[in-house]
């Protein structure tokens, strides 16, 4: 029986989660929300995490009924992410590990998303589409690594959506992506945008600057809703296309969508249509698990801990750059 606590704070979400043998007993979160037209910056985000982490930790312990002495391993996000916010969680995790005299384990954020998705959906060996504000990757498991088959060659899809929301001065509450999704539902007119697929890789920066450069003209002919609709239709079609390509390449019949953009229902719907055509199944989760959280870190840490992975206290650092395929997966065959 493994009880693990996880601290996540690689971007503007701060999460503490606790898992007991694959059961989620606490999943607490706070989001740092910036005013319309603004993105989150490292220093302010770190301050937000500092101000909230004790309350979130207390909430998670209370909610779960778990006391520190019952915990087997303290997990935190080692990277990738923004340095300063990562550091806040790492420091609190180290302090807890010392205070409670427990082992500490740094977890790769991307691996956290994948393992959480597999836990929640029971997908067995899926092709994974990992889409968030900082990442866009197509991943499949092969010989002890989650290997990256395709990814963005410039900005992440979530970053593209968030920045477009800023161009339109949309609210960041609850999240810019959510507001684009709602606006897109009201859009009716489709405006053709650049479509950029290179093999299994994609590029989004061209689409964003195309929109930015013409925004005043575009708003003469199209409503913001139409533009959100056109943007979503284009970038999601690109993602579904490279996912299908990767599935064909690996002979896979399961897709798992993880990461913040993964809770977009239109993306899930398009993926579903693609999968239906090829007799495959799509797995996705809702905002509780798609969006960054502490549980994913706790669960990935619990898996690593159970398979014997250990981290020396002196190694409990953070890193802004930490690729998914750098991690040796000891808990899968």
């Amino acid at each position: 029986m493994v009880i693990a606590i996880g601290f996540e704070g690689s971007a503007n979400k701060l999460g503490v989660g606790i898992v007991r043998d694959g059961q989620i007993v606490a999943n607490c979160r706070r989001t740092y929300i910036t005013p319309p037209g603004q993105g989150f910056l490292p220093r302010e985000t770190a301050e937000h995490h500092q101000q909230n982490i004790h309350a979130v930790l207390r909430e998670a312990l209370d909610q779960s009924g778990i006391t520190p002495d019952m915990i087997d391993v303290v997990c935190y996000t080692k990277g990738p992410g923004m340095g300063a916010p990562l550091m806040v969680c790492a420091i609190v995790a180290r302090t807890c590990a010392k205070l409670w005299k427990k082992p500490i384990l740094g977890v790769n954020h991307c691996i956290g998303h994948i393992e959480m998705g597999r836990l929640i959906t029971n997908a067995y060996n899926p092709t994974v589409l990992y889409v968030s504000g900082g990442n866009t990757q197509i991943i499949a498991y092969d010989r002890n690594k989650y290997r990256i088959f395709g990814e963005t060659i410039d900005i992440a899809v979530g970053n593209c959506l968030d920045r477009f929301a800023r161009v339109l001065k949309m609210s960041n509450e609850p999240s810019p992506g959510y507001n684009i999704e709602q606006a897109a539902k009201r859009g009716t007119k489709y405006f053709p945008l650049p479509y950029c697929v290179k093999g299994m890789d994609v590029s989004f920066s061209g689409i964003l600057s195309f929109m930015e450069d013409r925004i005043d003209d575009l708003l003469q002919k199209f409503t913001p809703d139409d533009l959100c609709y056109s943007l979503q239709e284009t970038v999601f079609a690109m993602l579904v296309e490279i996912t299908e390509r990767a599935m064909a390449h690996c002979g896979s019949d399961e897709v798992l969508i993880v990461g913040g953009v993964g809770c977009n229902v239109r993306l899930q719907e398009m993926m579903g249509v693609m999968c239906k055509e090829r007799d495959a199944r799509v797995f996705a989760t809702d905002e509780r698990f798609c969006i960054d959280n502490g549980v994913m870190i706790a669960w990935a840490g619990a898996l690593a801990h159970s398979s014997g992975t250990k981290m020396d206290f002196s190694e409990s650092t953070i890193t802004q750059r930490y690729r998914t395929d750098d991690v040796v997966i000891t808990w899968r065959d």
Binding site: P192, Y195, E233, T234, A237, V240, M271, V273, M274, E277
Partner: peptide, 13 residues
């Protein structure tokens, strides 16, 4: 035809 994508986009692609 790929049914997941917008018909205009599909034809263009």
């Amino acid at each position: 035809q790929k049914k997941y994508r917008h018909p205009d986009l599909d034809i263009e692609i």
